[in-house]
Design a binder for these strands. Sequence first.
DNA 1: CGACGAACTGTCCAACTGGACAGGATTGTC
DNA 2: GACAATCCTGTCCAGTTGGACAGTTCGTCG
Lengths: 202, 202
Amino acid sequence: MPTAPAKPNRGDARVALVAAGRKLFAQQGYDATTTRQIAAEAAVSHALLRYHFSSKAGLRDAVDDDVLGSFTHAVASAREEGTDHGDLAEVGRATALLFGADQERRRYVRRVLVDGDDRAAALLARLVAGAERELERLLPQPSALPPEQRRWAAYQTLFLILGPLLLEPALHTVLGSDPFAPETLAERSHANQRLLQHGLFD
Amino acid sequence: MPTAPAKPNRGDARVALVAAGRKLFAQQGYDATTTRQIAAEAAVSHALLRYHFSSKAGLRDAVDDDVLGSFTHAVASAREEGTDHGDLAEVGRATALLFGADQERRRYVRRVLVDGDDRAAALLARLVAGAERELERLLPQPSALPPEQRRWAAYQTLFLILGPLLLEPALHTVLGSDPFAPETLAERSHANQRLLQHGLFD
DNA sequence: CGACGAACTGTCCAACTGGACAGGATTGTC
DNA sequence: GACAATCCTGTCCAGTTGGACAGTTCGTCG
């Protein structure tokens, strides 16, 4: 089903293939996506994939650069945009910017994290580092937390954010609605801030 | 690589196939596992799979029954074992019982949640219901939480628990050690209890 | 115009997949 | 020991996969 039917102009096939790959990898995962599906989605011969990227893995690398590159960019702009209130709401804003806007990127990130190899570890390392940096800035210095809890704080924060991302399809079914719908996302984000601030049992 | 080399006795092939399926599905996922791999792991002809389970999907159903059945059993015994202190530590104990002991079951559960279809939604629904029940018991009545936060409490609790499960391979790499090693699990569990109790910013 | 290189295509291929099936081995029963 | 049911195997099959490759189209530059 070539959902993007228009045949690309000569010379545009490369970007069309990257777009098709991003879409289908995000939807179905890398292994479950065939080169022929990608070619059909890009309205292009499947032999062209090999010409431009030399292999299926080559296309994946190109898509990774594309998605994770724009990801890096989004992180940077999110960091600058917030006028640095120094409060926890920034976490929510950053999350919304990273994961709220673009469903396709969200699903692609999910696939990278879940397909679970070196790419997943590399991405997770970046996310942990980012969360750690943010916490370092927001937590009182010196933190009142005992070290063996402080050590897990960034991971805990991240799990609250990534949980819905990783479980999106199942969560959608259980909730009966899109967990990333703007109002839902805002409510979740607020609940997360409150949990981090006071716990559930304050 | 038939890691379980011993040829099963006549009549034992069925259970051998279920065990092999559980192992390989947990390690590689359903789609990435071939019927021939399973047969080799069970030291049995691959045609036998069809005889006993009629199809690859049939074997998956049998493995699901096996794993998720023992899962249900584990939940029940965890519930009875705790002498009902009514405190948060029970969450940690239940988690440890569910996910700590058996690496293979842990990975299988991860696959079910992540491969993301109806089975994932059904399992998640059970987990949410369980977490909800637990919170209902542990939270002060009436809860001081505003309803729009109370609504997400079970999910938040679950994300803290499931995060490491879903990200296990990547997390292992980033941490440089097994996130489910007993001491690590205990520390994480303790950190989770403290987060739920007081937040990070108490 | 002509030719040259880059972009693109149709078609073939070996490997592998889940499944089909006919027949062989083993066990229990009379 | 014969027979039948169950368990099990070797082997074939059609479909799909990523990749290989020779050849065609197209823009561009002389």
